[in-house]
Nucleic acid binder design. Structure first.
Lengths: 223, 223
DNA sequence: GTCTATATATGGATAGAC
DNA sequence: GTCTATCCATATATAGAC
């Protein structure tokens, strides 16, 4: 499943992107099995044969698009981390804002999460090598990138961490997972207030688990 | 989607169950779209026409089987609650045992969770009325049944609950959800030690959130 | 590389006898 | 109600001209 290099020689590389985008749309809307290569070709404005010139078959096209989409989401989350977790002013507020934005990313990439649902449905039929790549592009990598941010926060004394990666996973569990499951992985987006409640509660409990024993708000009047 | 009453007049009601079982197997193995009514008929040992005599179409067959399967899982979980949570001897141990058994139910009903994955993939194409029924038969009902058990435990002073149903959801979030997501809803079962780690950690954190402030182990020597 | 046209297969649903 | 045989639509993939 290594992403094949776009054909350069004389061909229009735009077409390949047009195909990928159309495939993402149609696969997301119809699911893998129902999606017709015909429809994808029409949506992309190319011939069916052109698709088969760029991709070996329907399955390769699907997997290629799925992995690209996962990377796009991953990049978006990376941006959110930098925005909310680089400089902490109020830990609870910043974590909440981060998780809220992260949760809303689910509804901002609807085509991709439709692909995620299709992959879940097909997962028992996918080759092991493909699944490994899928795992590598997915949530686990997100945890690995979140952990250093939490570690930096802990180094400033705002959290007490035994294991930064485990804590990253906990934050995810307490906020994202509920949103994912209850929204059917974004298929039926939850009302914004509901998401806010879930995330707020999750962050609060996360801090109850990981906040320092008694946060002395740097009282300016020592005994 | 009301489950239609089996035809009695002269027909063999066994056939219907054979069809349902075969459908559960084939839908679980192939997914909704790939599953052929032909194959289901062969697996059930009946003719294709017989299936269409019992069920309006493929979709009705699928949904009927899915809801029945959800009820079966629900009943199994109900049994586990009675076994582990009716009489508490050691709260942490009992909760852990319950959640472990509950998590392993995912791998004990592989066909059903394969159906769950298919439903996720199809969820945007399902009628709203069907989705409501699906939700009603699924996890939310499990929370509602778990809550009273937690409430009884709290009444004995072993937990401090603000809202029993919220706590039930928390226990679920901290144990089941990770298992579900990381195993791709049971498609790639996690190693038993991994499940044990997840559940053990989850219950420990649950108790850190909901245990009474300082559990006095009824010390026999007051000041 | 791209297009039109087509081969080939499959699957949902039905007709009609028993 | 159940079976055998079949219709018809659809979909993947390919052939061959430009």
């Amino acid at each position: 499943m290594s992403v094949p290099a776009p054909a350069r020689r004389g061909g229009q590389p735009d077409k390949r992107r047009a195909i990928a985008q159309a495939a993402r749309l149609v696969f997301g809307r119809e699911g893998y099995a129902r999606a017709g290569v015909d429809v994808i070709a029409a949506e992309a404005g190319v011939s069916k044969r052109t698709i088969y010139n760029h991709y070996a078959d329907k399955e390769q096209l699907f997997l290629s698009v799925a992995l690209e989409g996962a990377d796009a989401v991953t990049d978006a989350v990376r941006v959110l981390m930098e925005r909310h977790l680089r400089k902490i002013v109020d830990l609870e507020e910043d974590l909440t804002a981060f998780c809220l934005d992260r949760a809303q990313a689910v509804t901002e990439f609807p085509e991709h999460f439709a692909l995620v649902r299709s992959i879940h449905a097909e997962v028992t039929r996918l080759p092991a090598t493909v699944l490994e790549k899928w795992r590598a592009h997915g949530p686990p990598s997100a945890h690995q990138r979140l952990a250093p941010y939490l570690q930096r926060i802990a180094d400033r004394g705002l959290l007490v961490l035994d294991d930064a990666e485990r804590a990253a996973n906990r934050l995810n569990t307490l906020t994202m997972n509920d949103v994912l499951i209850r929204s059917f992985y974004g298929a039926l987006p939850l009302p914004e207030p509901t998401v806010r409640d879930i995330v707020t509660d999750g962050v609060r409990d996360f801090l109850r688990l990981y906040a320092p024993p008694k946060a002395p708000p740097q009282s300016r009047e020592p005994s």
